[in-house]
Write a protein that binds this DNA or RNA. Structure first.
Lengths: 149, 149
DNA sequence: GTAGTTATTTGACAACCTCAAGCATTTGGG
DNA sequence: CCCAAATGCTTGAGGTTGTCAAATAACTAC
């Protein structure tokens, strides 16, 4: 139990506190708006990830959702029942089922994109300069994301 | 279907994309670490919110968790079964039950705090200058949070 | 063609979450 | 004082998310 090691929290540590708080609030708000559309957060996120032009295998979706493949079955089921998505066996490999967005799914997807790409009020309220700086810094951080795979 | 209206996304809109992505990745990572401690995300978050020195009424916790009071019953149950938390009827008003963290709950809480206050790798990898700027900007944003209530 | 791999599904189980209803306690008006 | 309304928590029903292990179907390689 040395006394050191907590000598100085890095600025990143301090930033994390705000980052987390903003994230929680935003998630709650967005969740409420999504509920009005009859969508859960996961369903909306899935809809967002799906490429309107390219059918996506369920396993690929599972990877993007950071969850088990068996979980995607249920999510796809519920989206499919509502006619937002269709399962389509891949020609060439009939094991894999790719998901396609239906026209009505596309309409809902638009709204979801609009909704979820909206920044938290607290961030929208920042000055232009702050917003730009924030965007640039987060862009640099996100760039660190891919190589880290 | 006019063409305008999407003329120029604000920097905040662009920032949101990275913000969301970083948040998702972090949530997944933290979730995995928490699972090793036998805690769900909600349980950990609750443990974090509870004040070690001051018993907190369950309704207050519900508010901080942005969820229904009936939901807190279950979360508190599971924490209490593991001896991390105790229900304590408030003297003066026996309706309200306040949650206290037990010593063993405190030990776990320390680890949770440590774990969840750790910034995403992508942010920790930023330059000192970027980290500082990020912290300051997010602090300004978070300040906008409280008055907005 | 047979054995092993791969993609999805199913079933069992647990947590989270909401809503409506119920219970105990407290508060306020007659 | 007493009863009605309000408050804080719990319970029960019902739905979504999530995991794991086992089952199924289809592909691949020897």
């Amino acid at each position: 139990m040395t006394v050191q090691a907590k000598t100085r929290p890095s600025p990143a540590h301090e930033a994390q506190k705000f980052f987390f708080e903003l994230g929680m609030v935003q998630r709650t708000k967005v969740g409420a708006r999504l509920a009005e559309l009859g969508l859960s957060f996961s369903q909306a996120h899935a809809l967002r990830i799906l490429d309107p032009d390219e059918p996506m295998p369920m396993s690929a979706l599972a990877e993007r959702l950071f969850c088990d493949a068996s979980n995607v079955t249920g999510i796809a089921d519920r989206l499919e029942v509502r006619g937002l998505v269709r399962r389509q066996s891949l020609e060439g490999d009939r094991r894999v089922k790719a998901l396609t967005i239906t026209p009505s799914g596309m309409k809902l997807r638009e709204q979801v994109m609009e909704l979820m790409s909206q920044p938290p009020d607290a961030i929208a309220a920042l000055s232009e300069a702050d917003q730009r700086a924030l965007r640039d810094i987060l862009a640099r951080a996100a760039a660190h994301l891919r190589p880290a795979d």
